[in-house]
Simulated scan of single mutants.
Amino acid sequence: MRLLHTSDWHVGRTFHGADTVDALSAVLGEIPDRVRRERIDVVLVAGDVYDSAMPAGRHVEALTRALQAIRDAGAEVILSSGNHDSPARLGANAGFARAGGLHLSTTATDPSSWCVDLEDEHGPVRVYAVPYLEPVVLRAVVPEAGIDSQASAMRWAMDAVRADLADRPARSVVLAHCFAAGVEPEDDDAPREIRAGGLDVVPISAFDGVDYAALGHIHSRQQLSPAVRYSGAPLHYSFRERSPERGGWLVELGARGLERVDWLSLPVPRPLTEVRGELESLLADPALDGTEGHWVRAVLTDAAMPLDAMRRLQQRWPHCAQVEWAGSAGRGDGADVRERMQRRSDAEVVDDFLAHVRGEGPSDEERALVADGLARVAAAEAAR
């Protein structure tokens, strides 16, 4: 059996204010061709299908067209919900969709709903599409499990997966949406909603017992082990994303389990480019010829911040999306300051606020209360 591991489609997301739905549709439109050419049986999407819990109508239509084209090409599709998705909305009509080869897994509290039973010439294959796990929600449903973090939530989920495999042995694949050990999300564009009060990392060992773990949540491809990988997003959504390539992992299961994993590239509609130097030099530099159609981040090293820098840069690079002034003192302009502010977690904002109004940050007990409150808000937003 051949499976294409993708994740983080984020239908409806913008890039520095620019609409991306047409570019994303073009990239996803390449998948049916890959399905036919590579004889792919199943396409996996490991969470964050939409970028919003309330996607616009045209974003729903764009996703529907992409999924229909993949099904028409002959592959089944298995999607799990991520922290950006509304489980109720994404999972609507899941029973009808399953009959047509589209499997939507959105009920985090019901492990019996995660499994998709498939079969090839070597026998059964079980794909467990684990939705994004919100510890606060799970604590209310299974208080006896002692779930207090993403790590313990994933251990609970994988224990359920392993128990099912013990009763019904088969080759197996799991989809999960989380930070796993070995990733460096601060260097990527990983969303921060998944954590409150600090990074919550799931150990790789949590995925023991399955043939392959198809992970989502990190937007650049990563290999944590031969059988535990991130595919990354199909588009670049930030200049912080490290890998220039976009695509997915082509996973092949043989008679005894995982046989091989290969990278399957998808086109990059608009590459990312960073240019650095003084404004006048950049505008005239022939070495940058050919980058005019790229998304551009400009780091200006002029001694003083040039006036009207963005407008002048966009005369050469119409898609210049970000300007940073390094200057002689290494200072950033207002946009850079705003970006650094936006990269703080909600818990860090609360910490800074308390330190400002009362002269000291929160105690450990207060941090725990803040973390729990933020997690409850995130859970309520995800369920809208």
Score class of each variant (00 low, 15 high):
Arg276Tyr: 06
Asp148Trp: 00
Leu44Asp: 03
Gly47Ser: 01
Tyr132Ile: 02
Ala69Ser: 13
Val45Ala: 10
Glu241His: 12
Thr20Asn: 07
Arg297Lys: 15
Pro191Glu: 13
Arg229Ile: 10
Val45Met: 01
Val141Gln: 09
Gly373Trp: 11
His122Asn: 14
Asp167Met: 13
Glu381Lys: 15
Asp164Leu: 00
Gln150Trp: 01
Val42Tyr: 03
Asp336Leu: 11
His236Asp: 11
Gln314Cys: 13
Ala163Met: 04
Arg221His: 15
Gly373Asn: 10
Arg221Glu: 05
Leu175Tyr: 10
Gly247His: 00
Ala170Val: 00
Gly359Tyr: 06
Val21Glu: 07
Ala347Lys: 08
Glu186Gly: 12
Asp22His: 08
Trp249Asp: 03
Leu282Ala: 08
Asp41Thr: 12
Ser52Trp: 08
Asp308Phe: 07
Gln68Trp: 01
Pro55Thr: 08
Ala180Asn: 05
Val142Pro: 02
Ala46Leu: 02
Pro32Asn: 07
Arg13His: 10
Cys115Gly: 03
Leu63Asp: 06
Arg338Gly: 00
Ser205Trp: 06
Asp167His: 12
Leu44Ala: 03
Glu30Cys: 12
Ala97Ile: 04
Glu360Gly: 02
Gly82Tyr: 04
Leu175Gly: 11
Arg89Val: 05
His356Gly: 03
Glu144Pro: 08
Phe179Tyr: 14
Asp33Gln: 13
Tyr132Asp: 06
Ser345Asn: 03
His84Ile: 02
Leu288His: 10
Arg37Gly: 04
Val161Gln: 05
Gly290Pro: 10
Glu144Ser: 14
Leu28Lys: 00
Ala180Met: 07
Asp208Tyr: 04
Gln222Met: 13
Val142Trp: 13
Pro203Arg: 07
Val299Phe: 03
Ser80Phe: 00
Glu134Val: 02
Ser81Pro: 07
Arg384Gly: 14
Leu24Arg: 04
Val11Gln: 06
Leu118Gly: 09
Glu365Arg: 14
Leu118Asn: 06
Glu144Trp: 08
Ala355Asp: 14
Leu199Phe: 00
Tyr237Ile: 11
Pro318Gln: 05
Ala303Asn: 09
Leu28Cys: 00
Gly248Gln: 10
Ala380Leu: 13
Ala181Glu: 15
Pro306Gly: 10
Ser52Pro: 06
Ala66Asn: 02
Gly248Glu: 07
Leu199Thr: 05
Gly232Glu: 04
Leu288Gln: 10
Leu118Cys: 12
Ser113Asn: 04
Asp308Tyr: 04
Pro286Ala: 09
Pro306Phe: 10
Pro234Cys: 02
Asp211Trp: 02
Asp72His: 12
Gly361Asp: 05
Val142Gln: 13
Cys320Phe: 08
His59Gln: 14
Val49Asn: 05
Ala335Asp: 14
Asp364Leu: 13
Leu283Cys: 08
Arg312Asp: 06
Ala62Cys: 07
Pro267Arg: 04
His84Gly: 08
Cys115Tyr: 03
Ala206Cys: 13
Gly277Val: 09
Asp289Tyr: 02
Arg229Val: 11
Gln342Trp: 03
Gly47Glu: 01
Val201Arg: 00
Val141Pro: 01
Arg126Ser: 06
Gly232His: 06
Val161Leu: 07
His219Trp: 12
Ala157His: 11
Val127Phe: 01
Ile78Lys: 01
Asp208Arg: 10
Ala75Thr: 09
Asp352Pro: 01
Glu292Leu: 01
Gly74Arg: 10
Ala213Val: 09
Gly123Phe: 07
Ser152Ala: 09
Glu245Ser: 14
Arg384His: 13
Gly197Thr: 07
Val125Glu: 00
Ile78Thr: 03
Val261Ala: 09
Arg36Ile: 12
Gly359Val: 02
Ala181Pro: 05
